[in-house]
Simulated assay, not measured.
Amino acid sequence: MRYCLLMNDWPTAQPLDTTRLHLEPLNVAHAQEMSHVLADTSLYQYIGGAPPTLQLLSERYTRQSLGHSSDGEQGWLNWIVRRQDTAEAIGFIQATLLGSHESLSSEIAWVIGSQHQGNGYATEASNRMVDWLHVQGVSTLIAHIHPKNQASAAVAHKLGLRATETIVDDEICWEASLP
């Protein structure tokens, strides 16, 4: 499948599962529980910013839930990551789709709450998302990672991305081509 740059042509996030995780398409109602997951200031050490207020998160989720940028040039896919055993929200993953019929790429990102880090959740969730993106026609993956963020670099490496020499906003651009 290939998508063009029209708002109604971008794929929409679908529920996805792994052995331990459920990836739930983002909606505005997630803001309340995610404000707690994202409250730890240590999460922003490398990505910048500060924990979002409930109002800010609600506004962000309202925009992101549309599934595309206002000009239609980007598709937005966002999932809340939940543990299968407890249904607890533990973070989020996202993909920003860019491109054309011939070449669809995706900038991917992941954030797992501090108390759940170190369990392989970011890799597991992101790997499932990447598999789904491949089926949607994505041929190139991109991630922007701060050079000191060893945990995210390890996730990117496990997903098959490789660091490039490109630096954007003080972050290393990691890339991979999907078969």
Rank of each mutant, 00 (worst) to 15 (best):
L141F: 03
I47G: 10
S65V: 05
A143M: 02
Q115F: 05
R82G: 03
Y121F: 15
A89K: 06
T62V: 04
H101P: 00
N78P: 00
V130W: 03
Q94A: 13
Q74W: 05
Q136G: 04
Q117T: 09
G49W: 08
A39N: 02
V81R: 00
D85A: 15
L56K: 10
Q115V: 11
A95H: 01
T41A: 15
E107G: 11
I145Y: 02
A125T: 06
A125K: 04
P147L: 06
A31P: 06
G118W: 03
G99W: 03
M34I: 05
I145Q: 04
L104F: 09
E73H: 10
S100A: 09
Y44G: 13
G113Q: 12
P147I: 04
H134R: 11
A143L: 04
Q136A: 12
S42N: 13
Y61V: 06
V138Y: 01
T41G: 01
H36P: 00
I112G: 09
S70G: 03
H144T: 09
V138N: 05
E59S: 09
Q117A: 02
P52C: 12
G72W: 04
K148F: 07
N119K: 08
L43R: 10
S69Y: 14
H101R: 14
V138R: 10
Q74R: 15
T53Y: 08
G91A: 06
G99D: 13
S103F: 03
S139H: 11
A29I: 01
Q32Y: 08
G118P: 04
L133P: 00
G67Q: 09
W76Y: 11
